[in-house]
Design a protein around this nucleic acid. Structure first.
Lengths: 228, 228
DNA sequence: ACCTGAACACCGTTCAAGT
DNA sequence: ACCTGAACACCGTTCAAGT
């Protein structure tokens, strides 16, 4: 093939190729050369569309964030708390559908167009809950941190590329790890091993979410008493 | 140099070299070849001590976790809540001292010896707070997730190797990013831009911690009312 | 057991050139 | 502007061999 302008590629093609590589080979498999090969193009052709590999990865992450259907949480008739839970569940589902993205999130802060749209949705929901702008922002921080932290904890165990195995299977694998913890050195950990094995479940995620939302619900109310 | 057993290296030497590379070149700079070169040894010599690069990185992360002085939180005379805050602050400080580690944490679950010791300390503190074993485990989950999520959010912005710049500087950089957010498309985000710029501060971290601990303090108490 | 030597199959990125 | 060709300076990992 000869050089020269052909417009055979678009930014979106590059992202599609990157997404395919992520699914097939995992986070480490998303290489500039791999993307180029998949597009039938020479490696450095990718640099026409993105300045470097990090930019491709950042766009890839934002792309995944764009897959959550934000309109689904817009209905002001539904209770705000229910809508926040639904949003948080949708975010987790999308990020864990291909857990490789989670590892890529560490590469750049979530300030892409879709990341901002998610923040905007959160702020909107929290203001529906009666919070002032700044309280809403701090509550959004709390929620973002919880989603990010949970998902990071879960994804750290999913080293194989592609969609994760069913929850029961992942819990069982984690249970085997904690069953092997020496009870002599870590007595308390060993005693709650079955509970710790379930850290990665949707149930635990929802439970944590509920505690966070309890805290948020108190924001407008009287200050909490001293910790008992 | 000739081959043959020389015991010139230890597992700990490998980790020290990895730590130095992390500080000098950042997370991506911790390479097997780089470690070997620093130790004056041929690249594959490293494989005598670790099965692969991932194992080196996992050990490196656990090593950093081992730097928090856990005895500092053992004093049962101090209120449990104060001790938990101190533990969470120490963990954050250690992880952000060289933010590259945070990116490496995504590679494997925190089940090393020092990670387990931290969990054990958390469980101990939470049981001092009067929680039963399973409630303590769930509370530890909440705390772990908050620490992980906050630190991930902060570290994502620290792409340069070595110790991060002072907080004021990082807030200013983040403020510039959010000041550029188009108010037309993201009105609520733009309205709270200064607050969002401060997500990465110790103050915000402590605030979030307090909300989480409020939730934990309620665990033994009556169930919370419906979200207002 | 612990190291070397050499090789395999990869990387990201740059620079000059062609259309 | 958009692509090729060729090169530079890297990777992780394996295998056979030496002591």
């Amino acid at each position: 093939m000869k050089p020269g302008p052909r417009r055979s590629l678009t930014e979106s093609d590059v992202l599609a190729a990157a997404t395919a590589l992520l699914a097939e080979r995992g986070a480490g498999g998303v290489s500039v050369r791999g993307i180029a090969a998949r597009l039938g193009v020479v490696p450095n052709a990718v640099y026409t569309y993105f300045p470097d590999r990090a930019a491709v990865l950042a766009a890839l992450v934002d792309d995944v964030l764009g897959r959550v259907d934000r309109d689904a949480f817009a209905d002001p008739a539904r209770p705000w708390r229910e809508r926040l839970v639904a949003l948080a569940l949708a975010l987790r589902a999308e990020l864990l559908a291909d857990p490789g993205v989670v590892r890529l999130m560490g590469g750049s802060p979530p300030v892409g167009a879709h990341a901002l749209a998610v923040q905007e949705t959160m702020l909107s929901l929290l203001q529906d809950a009666g919070l002032g702008p700044d309280d809403a922002a701090r509550a959004a921080y709390l929620l973002t941190v919880h989603v990010l932290g949970s998902v990071a904890l879960e994804a750290a165990e999913l080293t194989d590329p592609g969609a994760p195995p069913p929850e029961e299977e992942r819990v069982a694998a984690r249970a085997r790890v904690f069953a092997a913890v020496p009870a002599q050195r870590y007595p308390r950990t060993a005693a709650v091993a079955p509970t710790m094995a379930r850290y990665i479940t949707t149930e635990q995620y929802r439970w944590g979410l509920d505690r966070v939302l309890d805290g948020i619900a108190q924001l407008g109310a009287a200050p909490p008493g001293p910790g008992a």
